[in-house]
């Protein structure tokens, strides 16, 4: 169990600030997801918590104890790396048992824990293989196995699913969520995939250039984004942003509206445009609509069987209850 608090944590790499001073609190048993575009400092933040990088300034405390200068092994955290970082010359059994061997745990207890972890992760048949003889998904599970045998206070995951194909990713996502439900251990999970963030997290931390843009539950972020960045980052397809005179009518510099909150009609509506590309997904159709005096096309969701074609004139009506207004600094006006 771990309650992790970061206070004014700051990180520079040879003078370049990657993480400006940042505060964050992670509650015991929470599933926290760090999400943000590539290079925003998610991995760096996770590595600071793990102790693999030293903080430039600030303190990290785990369960009320200042752990800023505690070495990684003593923090009681386990980490799963993006490359899995399995030991290639050891069998699966040895890989999973390595942390126990390092802790000089009793031999029979080691065997028991390794076999239990293998059973949980469906690895029992592969215990005597080497990592090179496993599929990507199996390697991933070995990496998770190596983390759970230690019964750590918290798990740290750095984009653990990014090397898997789409179908396997969905399966592993459910497995990790299931693991969290069962173990009730704190998990910190880094991803740049907002779908992973939305489906797995109790709490999402949106990062941008090392700064925390917003912290909240998935639905909070979806429904009440604090600024333009969060509004644009959370949700798929991306929220539509409109500037200029259309936005000024609503008393804002920019307005945002999600694709599901716009009603298309061939005959009447607030805004006029032309149908561009349309994506048919079966249950839904996403229409990309080119508006007059507005450069980016607007995405609109409509039912599975719409009868609109490339080049048709179309009218759009936004649902006034779901228009997000932003001022000229990108902050949401509430």
């Amino acid at each position: 169990m771990a309650h992790i608090v970061l206070e004014k944590v700051e990180k520079n790499f040879s003078g370049v600030t990657v993480i400006p001073p940042l505060d964050l609190e992670i509650e015991d048993g929470e599933f926290v997801v760090f999400v943000g575009p590539s290079g925003c400092g998610k991995s760096t933040l996770l590595r600071l918590i793990a102790g693999l990088e030293d903080v430039t300034d600030g303190t990290i405390s785990i369960n009320g104890k200042d752990s800023t200068s505690v070495p990684p092994a003593k923090r009681g955290l386990a980490m799963v790396f993006q490359s899995y970082a399995l030991y290639p010359h050891m069998t699966v059994r040895k890989n999973i048992g390595f942390p126990l061997r390092m802790a000089k745990m009793d031999k029979s207890e080691q065997v028991r824990r390794v076999e239990q972890a293998a059973a949980v992760l469906n690895l029992t048949d592969y215990l005597d293989r080497r990592p090179s003889q496993l599929s990507g998904g199996q390697r991933q599970r070995v990496a998770i196995g190596r983390a759970i045998v230690r019964e750590p206070a918290a798990f740290l995951f750095d984009e653990p699913l990014s090397n898997l194909d789409a179908a396997l990713r969905v399966g592993m996502r459910l497995e990790i969520s299931g693991l969290h439900k069962r173990l009730k251990t704190t998990m910190i999970y880094v991803t740049h995939d907002q779908v992973e963030a939305m489906t797995m997290a109790d709490k999402i931390v949106v990062l941008h250039d090392g700064r925390i843009e917003q912290v909240g539950s998935p639905l909070e972020l979806y429904r009440a984004p604090r600024n333009l960045f969060v509004a644009g980052f959370i949700g798929s397809p991306k929220m539509n942003f409109i500037e200029g005179t259309k936005a000024e009518k609503f008393g804002a510099h920019t307005i945002g509206i999600r694709s599901e909150h716009i009603t298309p009609s061939p005959t009447e509506g607030l805004w006029k445009g032309q149908v561009g590309l349309s994506e048919h997904l079966g249950s839904d159709t996403f229409l990309h609509i080119q508006m007059e005096e507005h450069n980016d096309p607007i995405t609109v969701r409509s039912g599975g069987d719409v009868d609109m074609h490339h080049g048709d004139t179309i009218y759009l009506t936004p649902d006034a209850n779901y228009i997000y207004r932003f001022d000229d600094r990108g902050l949401r006006i509430t």
Partner: peptide, 29 residues
Amino acid sequence: LDREQLEAAEIDGAPALAKFFHIILPHLG
């Protein structure tokens, strides 16, 4: 040698000597 292996060993609680014998030396074989 993949640096993440050494970092994983670090987190797994391997002291320097164990890292050498369990990770680096087999890699050098």
